[in-house]
Computed example of a mutant assay.
Amino acid sequence: MSELRGATDIGDFLVSARSFDEYRAMFALTDADLRGRALDCPGGGASFTAAARVRGADAFAVDPVYASPPRELVARLDAELARGSAWATANAERYVWGFHGDPAAHARLRAESAAAFARHLAEHPGHHVAAALPDLPFGDGAFDLVLSSHLLFTYADRLDARFHAAALREMARVGAEVRVYPLVDQAGRALPDLLASVVAELGDAGVRAEVEDVPYEFQRGARSMLRLGPVPPRTGVRGAGAPAAGGRMPA
């Protein structure tokens, strides 16, 4: 693992452990959203899958880190919790602390979430699939909902527009609906050119992309998610038109 390296960059991709409640707020999830098949992509050490399954969802997580033996993954997650907490504490002015309270409470919540993840991983390893965007091992339309947090846009300094478009098309292939949060980078900067580019490419592929506000802001400025779904039928001058061609979407 690299050191925290500078004012805008946390370093290596962080394996985080966000809680179910954070997911509900980040993605504006309702009870109805959790009644089908859901995929957390990438899942990291989040407790979403475990908690969603308790609530009746047929939930799974996918992440390349799941290729590691469970004991090694849990040990790595402990180190990542410390790294993430150190970053948040050192850069506290970049965050809105209303949801968590303060850096210490934030660290406790993430530790609790990581512990829930570790228990679920030990008891139900099949719910955690080792794979990485933009090539995921699921069939077309395998999920009702795909959630993706803190990878796309967050790491725009190292993931280019081509990767973003391919990853979004892949998630749209496997999910009837996709929600992506946040839409700012690590420094909290908006990315209008990148967002416009991927939305245009998704539209060409038959995928509707809309930006929606969410009832959550931890990183300052991160108040919106990207929601993907099929383009609805268009109504022509003479009546009902034909649906736009569907785009390929994996998970």
Rank of each mutant, 00 (worst) to 15 (best):
T89G: 13
R158H: 03
A116D: 04
P182S: 03
V96Y: 08
H120Y: 09
L133I: 08
L183P: 05
R158D: 03
F153E: 06
A161S: 12
H150Q: 01
A90M: 05
S148K: 00
N91K: 02
G101D: 01
M171D: 04
E123Q: 12
E112L: 08
A167S: 07
R108N: 03
D185E: 01
D157K: 01
A105F: 03
G126N: 03
A131K: 05
V129K: 09
V96Q: 14
M171A: 02
G98A: 11
F117G: 07
D102P: 09
F138G: 09
A86Y: 10
A130R: 10
D135M: 11
L145G: 11
Y181T: 06
F143L: 10
A92Y: 01
D140Q: 08
R162Q: 15
Y155N: 07
A107D: 03
A86Q: 13
P125Q: 09
T154F: 03
Y95R: 08
R173A: 08
R108E: 15
F117Y: 11
V146T: 07
A111K: 12
D135H: 10
A88K: 12
L159C: 09
L109E: 04
P137R: 14
A104T: 13
G139F: 14
A122K: 01
H164E: 01
D160S: 08
W87H: 13
Y95I: 02
A172P: 00
P103W: 04
V184S: 08
G141D: 02
A122G: 08
Y181C: 03
F163R: 04
G98M: 05
R173D: 12
A88V: 13
L147Y: 05
R173I: 04
G141F: 00
Y155S: 12
A131R: 11
H127W: 06
F153Q: 09
H120C: 15
P182Y: 02
H100A: 14
A114L: 11
A132E: 08
A90V: 04
P182Q: 02
A115N: 11
R179C: 08
P134C: 06
L159W: 07
G101V: 09
A161F: 05
F117D: 03
G139L: 15
Y95L: 06
L109D: 08
V180N: 01
A161Q: 07
Y155Q: 00
E170T: 15
A167R: 01
L145Q: 04
L183Q: 05
A105H: 04
R179E: 02
A165Y: 06
A165P: 06
D160T: 11
V184W: 05
G141H: 00
A90N: 04
T89H: 04
L151H: 04
A161M: 02
E93S: 15
A107C: 05
A92E: 14
R119C: 06
A176S: 14
D140W: 12
R108M: 09
R108V: 10
V178W: 00
G175S: 01
H127Q: 10
D140E: 13
P134H: 05
S149Y: 07
